[in-house]
Structures are given as structure tokens and as C-alpha cells.
Design a protein around this nucleic acid. Structure first.
Lengths: 148, 148
DNA sequence: CTCCATTGGTGCGATTTCGAACTACACAGG
DNA sequence: CCTGTGTAGTTCGAAATCGCACCAATGGAG
């Protein structure tokens, strides 16, 4: 099998697809009832990048249609985890802010994942993940830039 | 940041989630109207592993609930890409077979992806993917085995 | 053979995803 | 100032995902 064999892409994307499903299941097992992975993704994004992002900024960040982001934010708002204010700089858009409860839910979820990650770190060679992370980042950035 | 920092998992799973979305979009752009990634996944599985699998075998292989597999197979059958027969070894279950059209659609889709992969191979260092593939496989196998 | 717990598959309803169409606002050119 | 083009967000409807409840067949224990 030569390096240029296209089946390498196939196999890598296939493994990535399965890992995505399995890791999502691990996360969702730790989330409060009624919340799923995309909700947590938004809470996490607002914490890491910072509050006050617009829905469209986040839709682009997550590569989802804007209608999907509308729906995800509606769910978060109903649970009292985020609140939205009009964007003073642009009358068409909103800005999304975390509530204290939203911050708490994120923190508790991450704390809940601690044992899962600890077990993983014991039984799987973490150094291998450290090594592949830059490649994954480069691949993600390339695919992101290449999408028309 | 030490190797045991749990945030490595977080970041790796995050990149994997985004790559999964982007690669799925590439695949679905090449699929005939009305077919999405899970449909192709089944066609591909039946080709690689071989015909005559049962729905439950495939639900386990793809880590999806059996109701989802029922729905996916219904779509494939409506498009004439698979046909099901009763399982002579077990009256509760079915066996799923590819039709000629199903084989054709899979082959044409893979052919359609050729240019995408060729472009990717030109602009992204494929050797890096060859190198990370075993780690991804090991991670997938570990997570699969660890799921209770 | 008769239970009966287990397994494969489907029907149904709730939620999610997402494209198409629409409204409201922004901004640049005449 | 208008007017046209583009962007942010929502609504709506179709399809997908998935848990729950159900039915039919299996296969072991007694």
C-alpha cells in the first residue's frame, strides 16, 4: 500500500467517525438531563473564547447551519444556561452571554469527566495523543480552509 | 502542560469532532440525492465485510441504536440499494444483501471522491495520516472495548 | 414439554438537524 | 437620500436520531 493510496483517507476518516460517536457518548453520559453534546459545546466555546459571541460566529465555529444554532441556543436559554442581548453594534444580531448556572453546569460536567479521563490516561498511552494532536489540528485547519 | 493534563483528551476529541463534520460534508456532496453518510456507511460495510449481515450486527458495528438501523435500511431498500431476506438460522432476524444497483452506487461514490482525495493528497502531507492511523485505530479499539 | 428471561426487529413520539423561504437591518453606489 | 445586494436570525417542514414499549422467536432451566 503506497503512501498515495487514497484508502488512507477513507480509513482515517472512518476511525475518526467512530471515535467521535464513542467520545460523544462518554460526554453525554455526564451531562444533565435534556442537554446533549452540542449544548455543552456552546457552553464550552463561550467559556474558552469568551462571552458575548453572536450566534453566527458560533455556527461558523461549529460548522453547523445557522438554523441549528438557533435551535441549540433556544434549548440552552430554556434551561437558563445562557441569555441573549441585542448587539449594540449591529441591529441584525444578538450577543450570547453565559449565566452563572451555565458556568456551573460546564464546570460540573468537566469535573464529572475527570474520572473517565483519568481511567483513559491510565490505560491508554497519552503521549500518543499528544503526538497526533498537531496532525489532527493541521488536518482540521486544512479541511476548514478547503471547504467552499 | 504536562502529558497527563486531561485537557489533551478534550482537545483531541474536539478536533476529531470537527474533522468528522467536515469529512462527512465532503462525502455527502458526492452522494446521490436522498442518500446521506449512514446509508453509504452501510453499503460500504456490506461490501467490505460481506453481504448477508443482520441489522443488529450492523447496528453494533456502527454503534447506533437498532431503531436507527431499521430506519437507515428502510431508506436503502426504498432506493433499491439493498434487499432483505429472512434469516434461515434465526426466525427473529433478517439478512441484508446488496443489489447490483447498491454496488454501483458505492463504486460511483468512491470514484467521485477520487478528485477530492487527490487534491487532499497534493496539499496535505499524507504521510502524517499514515502515521496517525494506528493511533486512531488503537484509540477507537480502546474506547469500543471500554464502553459498558 | 413448559416456563420465562433474552434477543432481533418494528412502531411511535420527542427531539435534533438542516434546507428553503422570509424578515429586518447594514452598507455601498448612484 | 434611494436602491440594490448581502448578512443575521427566525419560522416552517422534511428527514434523521433515539428511547420506550411492544411483539415474535429463541433457548436454557426445571
Amino acid at each position: 500500500m503506497r503512501d498515495s493510496d487514497p484508502s488512507v483517507f477513507f480509513e482515517v476518516f472512518n476511525e475518526i467517525g467512530i471515535i467521535e460517536q464513542l467520545s460523544r457518548a462518554i460526554l453525554e453520559a455526564r451531562l444533565p438531563d435534556g442537554l446533549i453534546a452540542p449544548h455543552f459545546g456552546v457552553l464550552n466555546h463561550l467559556t474558552r473564547v469568551s462571552d458575548g459571541r453572536t450566534p453566527m460566529e458560533m455556527a461558523r465555529a461549529f460548522q453547523v447551519p445557522k438554523t441549528t444554532m438557533t435551535h441549540t441556543l433556544k434549548g440552552l436559554e430554556q434551561h437558563g444556561l445562557v441569555k441573549t442581548r441585542p448587539n449594540p453594534d449591529d441591529g441584525r444580531s444578538k450577543r450570547v452571554w453565559l449565566t452563572d448556572k451555565g458556568r456551573d453546569v460546564r464546570a460540573e460536567t468537566i469535573a464529572g469527566l475527570g474520572p473517565d479521563f483519568a481511567k483513559l490516561a491510565e490505560e491508554f498511552d497519552v503521549n500518543q495523543l499528544v503526538e497526533i494532536r498537531p496532525v489532527l489540528t493541521a488536518l482540521r485547519e486544512y479541511l476548514d480552509a478547503a471547504r467552499d
